[in-house]
Nucleic acid binder design. Structure first.
Lengths: 222, 222, 222, 222
DNA sequence: TATGAATGAGGTTTCATTCAT
DNA sequence: AATGAATGAAACCTCATTCAT
């Protein structure tokens, strides 16, 4: 009794070790450039063994990406585990996503990279399922919070919480992608400081969602 | 008399034919999966000839992408070549970008794909220069129009036109990227119609930029 | 017990098989004309496997060449493992090199071909190291023997053994290169028998090195 | 009358220009690495035109090489156009060849490179003929001079002049080839100064050829 | 005569994946 | 469970030579 459990634990442990190795390689090289040889070497395992635990290179990539999603989720949970007003928490979510971008740039990149469907043709369904549910968890957290903002009267009742979440995310994510790869270019070409742009646009979007009564609270807080 | 000119025309024509072939292949397969063999076959030319006209696969890719940028630019020019009020033209730009997304999806994808710098290491400087200038032309057009909106008193003078353009674009582009690959998914998972989201978010952003006096004009127009 | 050893043996065996195949192709076609496809086919292996064992075509070439150097070294060792007088052994070295030229012509060619540094840019450092040390071993053997000839009073003490070795080799090697490619040509054009030329020139060089006392020994021997 | 001659002159002039261009490229890159494109560009002509004047890249290579042979021949003629004793002239030939090696290194290399028959499969018969006759002219000059040395009683009558020429050339050429590519290597590995080796070996060979009476002349001269 | 566009076979090398052990 | 040798298709690119104009 307990032997299969131990085996299971060991297997899980090995999966994590492989993921550690893959993470290092993917961070440095990206999906296309990374090779299974490099990952195997980093994991101090044979290439064959990798395939024992993950069905394809892309599955491995997704495995790492899911880690990144978990990190973001945890950061979101933490950011909203205070006893501040909901409206402030929502603001914190935005800040937190920006912090995620800054501190976990490689995960941010992986995530955006993988949105391109042409680039993952070998993903297994299981992995895709895991990925979806991780994704969903995050959206749910954000949407629920916005809903609560509505319920509490700080966000206009005309706002659809899911739509709102998407807008906030699309906007900030879009700018961050530019920050990631073209911050200099925008600075030179248009004389624009992307970080400031993001702050302003987020503020702008926030404000349009707030009820009149909420606006004053936020002003006094920030 | 005119022989070198004809030669030049023929050469340009051949470049276009190659681009046609490449476009078909890239649209279907993407940069990574497409092969020079396929493009050569589609162009009914030898592979060597391709390299006579374009220095690398990535240059060819950029060549196609620049077509897409030209198309967008032309659509923008057309959309603003009316005698409507500036503020309405700005609104049209947004609609036009959405139409571009709908009607020239593959170009839209190429463009977003190429923003990832990891994926183009073989681009020639000339081609990159062409690409940059095409890009710049579009930004300039949008920014100039916003500036005019400010000058005419319809857009708040506190708005920075470049920042404003970036915000509008980031937001719409971000949502379109989701529409492109995950429209169904968002519908199922969150019950959200992304198209509606985009319309709403654009409207929202627009509104925050308008001066009080302008708001009434727009309302009466739309 | 013994399993890793057997694996190692098999691996070494495979390396040898590949070298066998490469040798055949290089002998026939030379470095430039030989293709990895041909070698792979000759080895009845996939091209990829070749690269598993050798890093480049040039490494493979060096691998074959090192065989040739080993053969020559062994012939030299054998030629000097008699109990004849040193001075006679030195003479035997010359004869042996000529026999090497006759019996291992292709190796002789490879060796001379590879002296041109323009033609090998892809050689790995390991392989180059092996090559150098093989080369050195041969020079050492010759030089040591000449030194011994000096010590024993048969070769003049004014002779520098390394210089002497170089002179002997340059001379014979130079003539052999002509024999290899232009024996007929010299016969027709100048009525000269290159083989005889080589014998004579070697004899001439030998004689100038000998001490007076040694000359009589050699005369009585040959 | 005169028009065909002028045409012929112009054609010859164009051939020379092409050769100038080819020489520059071959000197820098060697036969294998040089491309017809580079040569065409250097010649400010189209690639097609090159083939109008020379049948193949290798013919072009030979064309350049023949220039080098002419240079050497001229240097030899000049070196022997004095009123010094024949035996001194012969010595001068050796020095001249060394000067050729030093001052026209690229020609020296071309010449030795082209001795490898595997590397010229596309040479036309005409070109090969030109090459042979240039070669022959040089050998003849040397051999004739040696013969004169014999006739004048300075070189032993047992010496065959052609054989002697070959020996002298093989020896010096062999050492020069090492000097060209491995001078450092020999210095480090064996502590040998190749230049000194060459001087010594040449001196040694000379001496063995001289009659007793001639030896004293040389001593007094050098 | 001169052009230069077109060819196309061939070059080496890479790497995700499989499978016998 | 783990290995790692083997695969083989495909990748991008080059370049001597030809030929229609």
């Amino acid at each position: 009794m307990g032997i299969p459990e131990r085996k299971e634990r060991e297997k899980e442990h090995r999966r994590e070790e492989i993921l550690n190795a893959a993470q290092g390689v993917f961070f440095e090289k990206g999906l296309q450039t990374a090779t299974m040889d490099e990952i195997a070497e980093a994991a101090e395992l044979s290439k064959g063994t990798l395939y024992l635990y993950y069905k394809s290179k892309e599955d491995l990539y997704l495995g790492v990406m899911i880690r990144g999603m978990d990190i973001l989720h945890n950061m979101f949970v933490e950011a909203t585990s205070t006893d501040e007003p909901t409206i402030v928490k929502i603001k914190h979510l935005g800040d937190t996503y920006y912090r995620y971008f800054k501190e976990h740039r490689s995960f941010f990149r992986m995530f955006n990279f993988f949105l391109n469907p042409l680039l993952h043709t070998q993903v297994s369904e299981e992995m895709m399922g895991l990925c979806d549910s991780g994704n969903q968890k995050i959206w749910k957290l954000v949407i629920d919070l916005i809903q609560r903002g509505i319920d509490e009267g700080d966000i206009r009742s005309t706002v659809d919480p899911a739509e709102c979440a998407i807008i906030l995310w699309s906007n900030s994510n879009g700018i961050m992608m530019r920050m990631d790869t073209q911050e200099e270019y925008f600075k030179k070409m248009l004389g624009v400081d992307l970080e400031r742009v993001m702050q302003k646009s987020m503020a702008m979007l926030f404000e349009t969602m707030l009820t009149d009564s909420a606006r004053q609270k936020v002003v006094s807080v920030s």
